[in-house]
């Protein structure tokens, strides 16, 4: 069962950029790529908790601003030599709006 929440307009996120959604339990980074796909993941690098939302977005990946680890936006997995994974959340564009499914977050909190 998915449970989509409307977050913002697609244009609220710059292309190849991101925004941060604050929730009670954690910050969630929402990324928009050059091809207007959107992705959501926990805004915390598994390395030393760097805010991934502040990294440079390229292709379907983001580079952590603190020590340059690279993460696949779809899976949340570190790419290349580094190892680690951050939680991802389903995200999609519906018309001009960005929707995220936070049900995973609620389960986690529970």
């Amino acid at each position: 069962m998915t449970n989509w929440t409307d977050i913002c307009a697609l244009t609220d996120i710059p292309r190849l950029g991101s925004r941060v959604v604050k929730t009670d339990t954690m910050n969630i980074a929402v990324f928009r790529t050059a091809d207007d796909a959107v992705f959501a993941m926990k805004d915390e690098c598994p390395h030393k908790k760097g805010p991934l939302s502040q990294g440079i977005v390229h292709g379907h990946a983001v580079t952590c601003p603190l020590h340059n680890w690279k993460f696949d936006l779809a899976s949340g997995e570190a790419m290349g030599p580094d190892e680690g994974c951050t939680n991802t959340f389903p995200a999609k564009v519906d018309g001009s709006r960005v929707l995220i499914d936070f049900s995973g977050l609620i389960e986690q909190a529970a």
Partner: peptide, 19 residues
Amino acid sequence: DAQSRFINERAHGNIQKDG
């Protein structure tokens, strides 16, 4: 192009280890 700058230059401050 702001999205092609490292975060320090995009946010016009040095990012610290706690964000």
